[in-house]
C-alpha cells in the first residue's frame, strides 16, 4: 500500500520559484502522469518525491509515512531516469541485481528476481552484456527491469521514452503500461508528450509555471479543461478560442453568432471549442479558409474567424478550397467558456 501525498510542497532555486505550493494525492496503484512543457516544474516535483531534491517547504508522505527528511534509499521508491543511468562498469545482470545486493538479499533470491524481471522486459539474452553493447531501447529495458526488481512501493519515471525513436516509443509505451499494471505499484510518470500521457495515465496532472492546473482523468482533461492553458496545451491541434461579448444575461455573442452560455457579471469572456467539435453547414461561425491539410481520415482546415486563427477538423469527404467562406457550427454540448482574467473555466 503506497498512497502518495504531496502537501503544500514548494521549491525555490535562489530567486526562481520552480514550484508554488503544490498539493496532490496519488492513490495506491494509481498511474499518475505529470504533464507539462519543459520548465514547468514536473521533473522538480518528481525529484522531490524521490528525495533527490529537498522541498523549500511542505510535506511529502508515502504510504502513510512522512518522508521529506529521508534519503532516497529509505523511501521505498525506484526511479527510471531519462538517460537510463545504466551503470557502464557492470553487466546487465549486475545492474539489475545492484539494488538487491544493497538490500543484502541471498544470492538465490537475487538470481530469481533478476531472471524474472529480465524475462518480463525481454532482455534474458542480454544479461552478460555491458551497457556500451546495448541499444537505447535495450538500455531502457534494463533501467525499467532494475527498478522493477526492487519490488518498490512507488516507481518514478522521468521522461523514460523521450530518447527513443518514434516506433520504439510506441512499442515500449504499450509494454510499460502492461508491465506496470501487473506490478501493482504506484507510478508517477513525467512527460511532455500529451499522447503518451493520455495513453498511459489513470490521471493526468497538467502542470504550468510551477503549479498543477488540473489533475483529472485523461478524458476529463481533454473534454473539460479546468483552465485555458489546459485547453491550449492538450489536443493536437489545440482548442480554438474566440472572444465572447455579453448579449444578454446567459447569452453571448461570438463572431456574430448568439449562443447560450453561463451567467456571469463580466462583459466579455472567452468561447472555446475543439477543432473536431464543429461542423460545416448552413449556419455557424463565419470562416474564410486559409490552409487545407488532408490527413487521411479527416481534413484539417485552418481558417480566419473574426481575424483570428481557427482550426477545424472536417470530414475528408468535405470539398473545400482555399478562400471558401464556410459556416462552422459548434456542437452545443462541447462548447466551453473561460474567464479571461482568471483563465479558469466557467
Amino acid at each position: 500500500m503506497a498512497e502518495i501525498a504531496i502537501k503544500g510542497v514548494a521549491k525555490r532555486f535562489g530567486g526562481f520559484t520552480a514550484l508554488h505550493q503544490v498539493d496532490l494525492t496519488i492513490a495506491d496503484q494509481e498511474f499518475m502522469v505529470l504533464l507539462g512543457a519543459s520548465g514547468c516544474g514536473k521533473t522538480t516535483l518528481l525529484r522531490i518525491v524521490a528525495g533527490l531534491e529537498t522541498p523549500s517547504q511542505g510535506e511529502m508522505w508515502i504510504g502513510g509515512r512522512r518522508v521529506d527528511h529521508l534519503p532516497p534509499r529509505d523511501r521505498g521508491i525506484a526511479m527510471v531516469f531519462q538517460n537510463y543511468a545504466v551503470f557502464p562498469h557492470l553487466t546487465v545482470f549486475e545492474n539489475i541485481a545492484f539494488g538487491l545486493r544493497m538490500k543484502k538479499l541471498p544470492q538465490q533470491e537475487v538470481e530469481r528476481r533478476v531472471n524474472r524481471t529480465a524475462e518480463l522486459m525481454h532482455i534474458e539474452q542480454l544479461l552478460k552484456r555491458y551497457s556500451g553493447q546495448l541499444s537505447g531501447g535495450q538500455r531502457q529495458r534494463v533501467a525499467v527491469a532494475r527498478a522493477l526488481a526492487m519490488e518498490p512501493d512507488v516507481i518514478l519515471m522521468d521522461e523514460p521514452l523521450s530518447n527513443l525513436d518514434a516506433l520504439l516509443r510506441l512499442e515500449m509505451r504499450a509494454e510499460l503500461k502492461g508491465v506496470l499494471a501487473a506490478s501493482k505499484t504506484t507510478t508517477i510518470y513525467v512527460t511532455h508528450d500529451q499522447v503518451e500521457a493520455m495513453s498511459l495515465a489513470d490521471r493526468i496532472a497538467v502542470m504550468h509555471q510551477g503549479r498543477i492546473v488540473q489533475a483529472a482523468s485523461p478524458v476529463e482533461v481533454y473534454r473539460n479543461p479546468a483552465a485555458r492553458f489546459v485547453g491550449s496545451f492538450i489536443g493536437n491541434p489545440p482548442m480554438n478560442f474566440l472572444p465572447a461579448a455579453k448579449a444578454a444575461n446567459g447569452s453571448w455573442s461570438v463572431a456574430g453568432l448568439t449562443l447560450p452560455g453561463p451567467k456571469s457579471d463580466r462583459q466579455a469572456i472567452e468561447f472555446a471549442i475543439r477543432p473536431e467539435d464543429v461542423e460545416a453547414g448552413e449556419a455557424g461561425l463565419p470562416a474564410i479558409v486559409r490552409v487545407i491539410e488532408p490527413l487521411g481520415p479527416h481534413t484539417l482546415v485552418t481558417c480566419d474567424v473574426e481575424g483570428g486563427l481557427f482550426r477545424a477538423v472536417l470530414e475528408s469527404s468535405a470539398t473545400v478550397a482555399v478562400g471558401d467562406r464556410l459556416r462552422l457550427a459548434p456542437k452545443p454540448e462541447r462548447i466551453r467558456w473561460f474567464d479571461p482574467e482568471t483563465t479558469h473555466a466557467i
Partner: peptide
C-alpha cells in the same frame, strides 16, 4: 544520474 540511480537503489 548514475550516482542518483545508486542512491535510489539503496546506496
Amino acid at each position: 544520474e548514475l550516482e542518483e540511480a545508486a542512491w535510489t537503489l539503496g546506496c
